[in-house]
Amino acid sequence: MPATTPETKKDAGVLYLGIDLGTSRTSVSASNGVRETVSSYVGYPKDVVARKLLQKDVLFGDEALEKRLSLDFFRPLAHGVIKSGVDSEKNVKAAADLIGEIIRRAKPRKDELVYAVIGAPAQAQIHSKKAIHDAARQHVDSVMICSEPFSVAYGLDMLDDTLVIDIGAGTTDLCRMHGTMPEDSDQLTNTFAGDHVDETLSKLIREKYPEAQFTIQMLKQIKEKHSNVADSMLPVVVNLPVKGKPTPFDITNEIRTACRSIVSPMVDAIAELIGTFDPEFQEKLKGRVLLGGGGSMIKGLDVELERQMHEKLGGGKVMRVEEPIYGGSNGALKIAHDMPAEYWEKLR
């Protein structure tokens, strides 16, 4: 890794990395053609026995999730930033290891300079960005942090009159693009995102089927498969254990209600950003709402958003990015590519 072997001569090339460090999923797009994504889970063997069994010092992603009973298990990011409070240091370490892992998966060569741009939530506090920066700095030669929705817009060359909505697991970031660098007043972040859908779904199922046994993780998988906000949708019947016996439950309405729970706050945020924008350009902004992030894969979301925007704002046009998983990392990669050499040098 670059930071641990500074004596390695790096004259073979320059590898750019665009990283989308997400609460649920971390993705990388690299200038060597590699694109990888890993669930943002990190686990360390609990004891010597677990270490011997797992044959690894640290596990990531779905492997960590699968073996979590033998691990000190971390989901180091919450609301798009490194968790603080209890186990703060451990979370920082887990985040650093996660960034190291996603960089390793990008297959950098030891003789190449590695320059990375990492997307962070629009309104992340400066100390949160600093924590991400420090964690990444151990693994790359130079790193920059930028706003996640901005990187999505930059990747698609939609820098004018566009309202970008990046729906992640921890946060939904909204960013108003109007031909300049978005300021704080151009960005909004709320926590009505993927995790909120999971919690709502859990609450609704528990109310309706108190005998059903499940975990948030199980619900997350169900949501990723069946998420939908449309009025008419295929019935969602899933098997959940009841005292050990798999039992079918119809959760069609619960899924729809849970997924719709993020739409209204989203429309409120859109209304706020549009309402505070130059009146002359409000119509243009309403007509170019861009949905990105994993949450944009909820079926019918664009139509439902347009419907509610029509009710509250008198109209609107919503588009989806083509690659929700890599939209952020692709944009960050483009920023890394366009960044002048002297800027990278100064930050080394």
């Binding site: 090339g13 320059v14 590898l15 200038s31 060597n32 060569r109 190449e112 002048p340």
Partner: peptide, 11 residues
């Protein structure tokens, strides 16, 4: 590793 397509910093 996989070599990057860039040999120098682009800008």
């Amino acid at each position: 590793g996989v070599a990057s397509i860039y040999k120098t910093v682009q800008g």
